[in-house]
Write a protein that binds this DNA or RNA. Structure first.
Length: 254
DNA sequence: ATGGCGCGCGCAGCGCGA
């Protein structure tokens, strides 16, 4: 069972790349973030034609998440309980015996800004939601753009980034609190190359110089961990013309 | 040097991302 996560930074622009990638990699499940599409504009037809079922929760211009799978989708949820939030950042669904959570965690803009406070509040609500999800199904996978680089080794220049957005201690603590509910970062189950990142700024030739951050993650619950066979970042789509600034992360969860 | 690039919106240049 292959599951992937990819922040596409506009599905309208990236749809051809996504369809090509689905054909090449044929994952069982793909979680997409930053579709930036209203639901009525979602390319249902083109995705279904490539053999995938789809669920989505979108809005105009910003955010938007989608779940694509070769299997059937049930029990979709699109909100964090207790958080009245118009921003479309959550899509949870049951796929077979698996509960899959697709997340686009707020960016936070700058430490101590209003958006940063929103990010931390959002992550607090997420912990409660994940606990609740785990209590009804012990097989949970959380995929998405977490907008948190959990450790210094996930950052190309840890000293330059120390304390800054995506790397600040409160963000890292929030990520740890999520893991403490009973999750594992699947990527770190395996030996990985030095400088493994999932996002590179469009500016300053950051990708060519590998000035990146690892902020896109696949987490699995305790019960699933022993079955996980692999996890890699696929840098190939980042090399294409007009790429997303994020690369897909793919795991074989057994 | 706090911008660089790319996207959406909408038709200029700004907000936003990370």
């Amino acid at each position: 069972m292959n599951i992937a996560t990819w922040n596409v930074n506009s599905l309208r622009v990236r749809l051809p790349q996504v369809l090509d990638w689905l054909r090449d990699k044929a994952p069982d499940i793909l979680c997409i973030q930053e579709t930036k599409l209203k639901d009525e504009d979602f390319p249902v037809q083109q995705i279904e034609s490539s053999g995938y079922q789809v669920a989505f929760s979108g809005q105009k211009t910003y955010n938007g998440v989608a779940l694509l799978t070769r299997l059937s989708i049930e029990d979709v949820e699109t909100d964090l309980p207790g958080l009245d939030d118009p921003q479309r950042r959550v899509l949870s669904a049951t796929i077979g015996s698996l509960r899959v959570l697709n997340l686009y965690v707020p960016n936070g803009q700058e430490v101590d800004s209003k958006k940063y406070e929103y990010k931390l509040k959002w992550l607090e609500h997420l912990v409660d939601y994940v606990k609740e999800q785990l209590s009804s199904n012990s097989h949970v996978v959380i995929c998405g753009d977490f907008n948190v680089a959990p450790e210094d080794r996930d950052v190309h220049d840890p000293e330059a980034w120390r304390g800054r957005i995506l790397c600040s201690e409160p963000e890292r603590e929030a990520f740890k609190a999520l893991m403490a509910v009973g999750f594992h970062d699947v990527f770190r189950k395996f030996e990985q190359p030095e400088g493994a990142y999932s996002w590179w700024d469009y500016r300053a030739a950051a990708f060519r110089r590998n000035m990146g951050l690892r902020i896109d993650h696949i987490l699995c619950s305790d019960k699933l961990y022993e079955y996980v066979k692999s996890c890699e970042i696929d840098k190939e789509p980042r090399k294409l013309e007009r790429p997303s600034d994020h690369a897909p992360v793919v795991a074989d969860i057994g």
